[in-house]
Design a protein around this nucleic acid. Structure first.
Length: 471
RNA sequence: GGCCCGGUGGCAGAGUGGUGAUGCAGAGGACUGCAAAUCCUUUCACGUCGGUUCGAUUCCGGCCCGGGCCUCCA
């Protein structure tokens, strides 16, 4: 087994780009924070999952044996009757007379429908919070035993005063935060930063998702699920943990506190966080109720791959501006890439060989870009330069591009596949080909018009006649 | 209020103390029976005011503008 390719990543924990060194190579344990399934994933959410998909593909390409785990948050702020809440989706749920369980299952399905459309590989393990309540309770018990948690008024809280490193990860200034605390003061907390591990005194009186616990019937806090499930599937030390940039100050800070408080040692080696997709210079706001999700792009005539291409053009640690103008540009770029792949596959039919040494240099440039903190935009630039390199044969370009596409995930192979039409239409195409061979242009053009009327656009490619269905 | 990040050509987006990102769009050309596709060439940039420097888009400072976090959030 060859040594895995050396990779470097920006580690949020150290705020530095550093060599990636899993504890037990070539194995890598990766935990990614998954969706809270009470609404559709918007396209900003999808950006994060595409980032994690690119990471996952890169790790495998580099030769690592990956165990990729993602949670489904199907418990938390789901209440049966949201009359007094301001969550529009909960109102919608009430209107549709669905239980929180139904809502969660429905949107979980929607989530995977969208990620499948985006060609995001499903994690090796997907775990639901509601199916790991026991592990969460066990972890909370362990935290209580170790003195990191206390019960008060029916709830259990993490005692941040017992974890001096609490502010380190997010580089928080606790004094400044206390001074401007705007949250409803919970008198049961010893410190404002303390957070709930287990609720039995919910602020939602109509909570229908609840379980027995040593502290009363209730439900888990909002952070414990990730710690408990990551431990369940990956053990008490994890190589890599990812999520959206917004998770740094609260969710991941709390995960670290409870996990390291529980285990007494470092929990995660490398943390990667994806930046936001922004629209009009502002982040996508789920609460606005009018956010964009993938179906809306499809309804507007775009393919999911158009959006995936757009995401490839930006580095994961930089904000990316979404606009339909930018999406149009991505769509054009992707079309060209597909046309190129298509033409190469035609030209390569004659069977010209592939010089492995000619490929090696481009593969090296491509891998170097990815190894540098997952620099997909540069990898994409390498792909374009390769595409326009005059020294490569079509078969070589095709081999390289399809290899690159194992990372990009644009499904370019589909552009090289031969397809079929109903026999009568194929016969028309054949007749036109004969007419062209006979230099009978009038007949050829008539047949083309006829095909066009039937929704088939003819394109005479360098390697032969191609067609595509049009509206 | 506190903390933090960013401002690159029409758009998206890399990068660097002194030559080229890349893609889309625009312009011109080539090829093509026509159409499509592809190829080639090419215009356009570094928020602003100072400083450091032989030289700054790149380093430093002020300012302006935009954004994020401090509360669930990808």
């Amino acid at each position: 087994m060859p040594e895995p390719l050396p990779l470097r990543f920006f580690n949020t924990r150290t705020r530095k780009v550093e060599p990636f060194a899993p504890a037990v190579p070539p194995k890598v344990t990766l935990y990614c924070c998954g969706p809270t399934v009470y609404n559709h994933a918007h396209i900003g959410n999808l950006r994060t999952y595409v980032f994690e998909d690119l990471l996952q593909r890169t790790l495998r390409m580099a030769g690592y044996e990956l165990h990729h785990v993602m949670n489904i948050t199907d418990v938390g702020h789901l209440e049966s009757d949201a009359d007094e809440g301001d969550d529009k989706m909960m109102l919608a749920a009430a209107r549709e007379r669905k239980s929180p369980w139904d809502i969660a299952r429905f949107y979980e399905g929607e989530f995977f429908r969208h990620t499948d459309m985006m060609k995001i590989r499903r994690p090796d393990t997907v775990c639901r919070a509601t199916e790991h309540i026991g592990q969460m309770i066990a972890m909370v018990e362990r935290l209580v035993e170790r003195g990191h948690a206390y019960a008060a008024g029916g709830n259990v809280y993490f005692d941040t005063a017992t974890f001096p490193a609490y502010a380190d990860f997010a580089r928080l200034r606790m004094d400044a935060q206390e001074a401007t605390e705007r949250v409803d003061l919970d008198e049961r907390k010893r410190n404002p930063a303390d957070f709930v591990l287990w609720f039995s005194q919910s602020k939602y009186p109509n909570q229908v998702m609840k379980w027995e616990s040593p502290w009363g019937v209730g439900f888990p806090g909002w952070h414990i699920e990730c710690s408990a499930m990551a431990t369940e599937y990956l053990g008490e030390t994890i190589d890599m943990h990812c999520g959206g940039i917004d998770h740094v100050p609260v969710h991941h800070t709390n995960e670290i506190a409870q996990s390291e408080g529980c285990f007494g040692h470092r929990w995660v080696d490398t943390w990667l966080h994806g930046e936001f997709l922004v629209v009009d210079d502002a982040k996508m706001a789920k609460s606005s109720g009018d956010f964009l999700h993938l179906d809306r792009l499809v309804e507007a005539g775009y393919e999911p791959m158009d959006y995936r291409y757009l995401l490839l053009t930006g580095h994961y640690r930089a904000r990316l501006s979404f606009s339909f103008e930018a999406l149009d540009g991505a769509r054009q770029s992707l079309r060209t890439l597909r046309n190129l792949a298509h033409d190469w596959s035609y030209a390569a039919r004659d069977g010209d060989g592939v010089r492995k040494e000619a490929l090696a240099d481009w593969q090296e440039r491509f891998r170097t870009a990815l190894a540098n903190d997952l620099h997909v935009p540069n990898a994409l630039a390498v792909a374009w330069k390769m595409a326009r390199d005059g020294d490569l044969a079509p078969a070589e370009k095709l081999a390289l591009m399809l290899g690159f596409d194992t990372i990009f995930g644009l499904d370019l192979a589909a552009a090289t596949e031969s397809r079929s039409l109903p026999d009568d239409l194929m016969a028309l195409i054949a007749r036109r080909e004969q007419a062209r061979a006979d230099r009978d242009w009038a007949t050829a053009d008539t047949l083309r018009d006829e095909l066009r009327a039937k929704g088939v656009a003819i394109k005479d490619r360098p390697g032969g006649t191609d067609w595509e269905l049009v509206g």
